[in-house]
Simulated scan of single mutants.
Amino acid sequence: MPPTLMSRVTGVDLSAMRESYAGGDSILDPADATGGWLPLFERWLAEAIEADVPEPNAMVLATVAPGPDGGLRPATRTVLCKGVDASGVVFYTNYDSFKGRALDANPVAAVTFPWIAMHRQVHFAGTVARVTAAETVEYWAQRPRGSQLGAWASEQSEPIASRAELAHRFAAAEVRFGGAPSDGAVPVPPHWGGYRIVPDTVEFWQGQANRVHDRVRMTAPGFAPVRLQP
């Protein structure tokens, strides 16, 4: 079989690339989730943080939106989880962005936490709703001022002529609100806020040797843990 284009470009046979997951003491059993998905997720997240996994709160978000042919098409991108509790997983974005419009039109989503260095993944899927204005304000106040100004400067997902124009828009936001905390608080843009994914399915995945991985899925309403074949 001839190499793919990527193989020719990199000089690497992609079909031969693979990682052998040792597993070791990291055995995942349905009994680990008998207390619900949240305690197990919090434990895995804490272990990812302790292991210095880069951006352990990063998650791949999948949404669905109409494609060029009028049918629904999936789209993925990486966002940052900014809150998790028994009610679900929270992230923040521009409501007018591509993902925001997709979620408003089709309020369902899935996310994956890819802790590859630990041979672990956690998947959530469910319905989506905007968080309250109070929750958005509370989180917004924690953001660096530069990030706040960036939210005002960017019409996320819209075309822009150049990087210079984006820099000009950011400079205009600095003039409008001031570039230092002493200039006063930057208000939350009306088009910006959070979404909460309320899961109806949560799946934990632990890599093991010989591709005989551990998978435990929990489904609403009871979220009883069930072992799946890999």
Rank of each mutant, 00 (worst) to 15 (best):
V131F: 00
V131M: 11
V131L: 13
V131W: 00
V131A: 11
V131G: 03
V131D: 00
T132A: 03
T132V: 00
T132Y: 10
T132N: 08
T132H: 11
T132D: 08
T132E: 13
A133Y: 11
A134T: 01
A134D: 04
A134E: 13
E135S: 04
E135D: 06
E135N: 13
T136N: 09
T136P: 00
T136Y: 04
T136C: 10
T136S: 02
T136A: 12
V137S: 13
V137C: 13
E138Y: 06
E138K: 12
E138G: 01
Y139A: 01
W140M: 13
A141H: 05
Q142T: 05
Q142E: 03
Q142W: 10
Q142A: 12
R143V: 02
R143D: 10
R143F: 08
R143N: 01
R143H: 08
P144Q: 09
R145K: 03
R145W: 02
R145L: 14
G146I: 09
S147H: 05
S147K: 04
S147Q: 07
S147D: 09
S147F: 03
Q148S: 02
Q148F: 02
L149H: 08
G150A: 14
G150H: 03
G150P: 14
A151H: 05
A151Q: 01
A151L: 06
A151D: 02
W152M: 11
W152Q: 04
A153P: 06
A153E: 11
S154Q: 13
S154G: 10
S154A: 10
S154C: 02
S154M: 03
E155A: 07
E155R: 02
E155H: 04
E155K: 14
S157Y: 06
S157M: 06
E158I: 03
E158L: 07
E158P: 00
E158A: 05
P159D: 08
P159V: 11
I160D: 08
I160G: 06
I160A: 04
I160T: 03
A161H: 03
A161T: 02
A161I: 12
A161F: 12
S162P: 11
S162Y: 04
S162V: 14
S162A: 15
R163K: 10
R163P: 13
A164T: 06
A164D: 08
A164V: 07
A164Q: 12
E165C: 12
E165I: 07
E165R: 01
E165W: 11
E165G: 01
L166R: 08
L166E: 12
L166P: 00
A167G: 14
A167K: 14
A167D: 06
A167P: 01
A167E: 14
H168C: 09
H168W: 11
R169C: 07
R169A: 08
F170C: 14
F170I: 04
A171L: 09
A171V: 06
A171Q: 15
A171F: 02
A172C: 15
A173Y: 01
A173I: 00
A173E: 04
A173Q: 11
E174S: 12
E174F: 00
E174R: 07
V175P: 07
V175T: 05
R176Y: 15
R176S: 08
R176C: 10
F177E: 00
F177S: 00
G178N: 15
G178R: 11
G179L: 08
G179F: 00
G179T: 08
A180M: 05
A180L: 07
A180Y: 13
A180V: 09
P181Y: 03
P181S: 05
P181G: 10
